[in-house]
Design a protein around this nucleic acid. Structure first.
Length: 269
DNA sequence: CTACGAACCTGCCTGC
DNA sequence: TGCAGGCAGGTTCGTA
């Protein structure tokens, strides 16, 4: 479900929980992507901060952190009081103010892991640059593309190089930069890397401002939808007219992922 | 080392 | 109405 803008949106709606004490944890289903480990260390501990690395949410305590990933279908909700758990409501964190932070994930591709050393955790090391920091520049992008024979869209979605870009935003960013998704990564020119870098930052920031993209069921922790879907130019627009040139948008399945582009605006050299 | 498809799961939608 | 098949916002793993 969620890419960087959606996780960041959820993080912002969770910020009021900073400073709260976790009074109890209820785990109903441990079998996520990895089995949920022992979460009892967070009981009677204060939430110091809630941060994001890549698509991971980190709930930080004095002596460790919860690493939370939402996979494809995960949701986090803050409930004002304890409502009866529904199907796939796998974990509740009960706060001292009686609110509940509830984790819901039908497909169970997500994870919740407690760690005392988040900086050394295997999920968080070996990640690429955060796209909204200065570390990502056109020049840097050009440098890391050298020698890469993968397709540019596949490259953008690989968190080893740049984190946070999933299928929706990879399609949108390439359209904005006028680069064909099937271009071989290393063939991009420096100028194309500069415009691609600019497109990444612009689109991710706009999507965060819009509260994320709700295609089907994305909701933030307050159960509100995001409005970036209204600004999508190609994702999910198969056969609709390109907003720039009216050419019908193309669709191709690239390694299991729907890939959308405008054949006229995005030239394959 | 790189790059790609399969696999992990459930739910929903389409078409027969 | 039922059922098979395809698809879904992510990531890791095995294989070439």
């Amino acid at each position: 479900m969620p890419e960087l803008p959606e996780i960041e949106t959820i993080r912002c709606t969770l910020l009021p929980l900073e400073g709260q004490l976790v009074s109890d944890v209820k785990v109903r289903e441990r079998r996520l992507r990895w089995s949920i480990n022992n979460l009892t260390p967070v009981i009677n501990q204060y939430i110091l901060s809630i941060t994001r690395i890549s698509k991971y949410l980190l709930i930080n305590f004095y002596h460790g952190s919860l690493i939370i990933h939402l996979g494809m279908s995960g949701k986090i909700l803050v409930l004002d009081r304890c409502l009866p758990p529904q199907k796939h409501d796998h974990v509740d964190f009960i706060l001292q103010n009686a609110k509940i932070l509830r984790y819901h994930d039908p497909r169970r591709f997500g994870c919740i892991l407690w760690t005392t050393k988040p900086n050394q955790h295997k999920l968080l090391i070996n990640l690429g640059v955060e796209p909204l920091t200065k570390a990502l520049s056109g020049k840097f992008l050009y440098q890391i593309l050298q020698g890469k024979t993968s397709l540019i869209k596949t490259f953008l979605m690989n968190a080893k190089y740049i984190v946070g870009i999933g299928n929706i935003y990879a399609n949108e960013v390439l359209f904005k930069a006028k680069i064909h998704p099937l271009r071989i990564a290393r063939t991009l020119t420096l100028n194309e890397c500069i415009s691609l870098c600019k497109a990444i930052k612009t689109i991710l920031l706009k999507a965060i401002k819009a509260g994320g993209t709700t295609i089907k069921d994305f909701k933030n922790a307050n159960n509100s939808i995001g409005y970036f879907a209204q600004q999508l130019q190609v994702y999910g627009k198969n056969n609709e007219s390109c907003s720039i040139c009216s050419t019908p948008i193309s669709l191709y399945r690239l390694s299991g992922r729907s890939t959308y582009w405008c054949d006229k605006c995005q030239i394959l050299n």
